[in-house]
Design a protein around this nucleic acid. Sequence first.
DNA 1: ATATTGACCGGAAACGTATC
DNA 2: GATACGTTTCCGGTCAATAT
Length: 293
Amino acid sequence: MRITLKQLAVFVAVARHSTVTRAAQELNLTQSAASMALSDFERQLDCLLFDRIGKRLQLNDLGRKLLPQAINTVAHANELEDLARGHGDKVGSLKIGASLTIGNYSMPPLIAAFMRQHPQCQLSLDIANTSHIIAALEHFELDVGFIEGFCHAPNLEVIPWQQDELVVFAAPSHPLAQKEQLNEADFANAEWILREAGSGTREIFDNAVIGRLPHLNVLLELGHTEAIQRVVASGLGIGCASRLSLTEALASNTLTLLPTPFWNLTRQFFILIHRQKYRTYGLEQFISHCVST
DNA sequence: ATATTGACCGGAAACGTATC
DNA sequence: GATACGTTTCCGGTCAATAT
């Protein structure tokens, strides 16, 4: 007997959930049927793909090697079925991941426009920091990712996307906001409210000021841009964030920009896709929609 | 709580035979 | 040779018991 698509689907689902029970729920099988399909699959291949650690199944080295092929084979089969049913040119479900600035400010209008073109598609958007998005793509938990930081993972294809600009801001009442002209020395003793290490925004900021500010006084690290804006608007410290995120705060005059022409705070957004990811019709359509927008 | 295993069941495929 | 029909075999499922 040869390996079956069902066994591949069970393998992929167990790899995703690390438990047979959850995998079975996802595939509408009983737990024992999923358990048997997985053990049959391992028997066919004459090797184990998971380490059994207590009640959990942890993908081993060989399992990790086979997983991309298994995911792609299942995706191929699904697309073939769609084609046979006349849905080959339809967008199915897509799992999109985006880092915080992109996810909160760039993605919503893009997704809305795409869904107007493809009303039957099912999109999900995970918003997390850059390192989280990269990890999720590497584990095939996302179909495509959009990040604002750098990616050094060799198994991910990195496609340059939009340009963005970080800006430094403060409350209008802040002493630095009162000055006519600002130079680099004015920021030497500033108290900063910044995103956490690991975020794309923080990486760009650190690269821009490293070696230029003798002492960086980070008063507070927060995981959300809006939280940073609220803290800064209350008069505590100064912040740095994407210009995209500040539109409303600048319009309502709750925050004001502090010009920093002496720092290079421009940055590139990137699209990430796993090199071994099978690109379905829907995925290709979404990427070209984003690139052309 | 969850994974594995054995017993059992139902449906589909495979096979053998009869008929045209 | 093609088709119809009955029987057997196999596969994949559930349920229940057991192991971890």
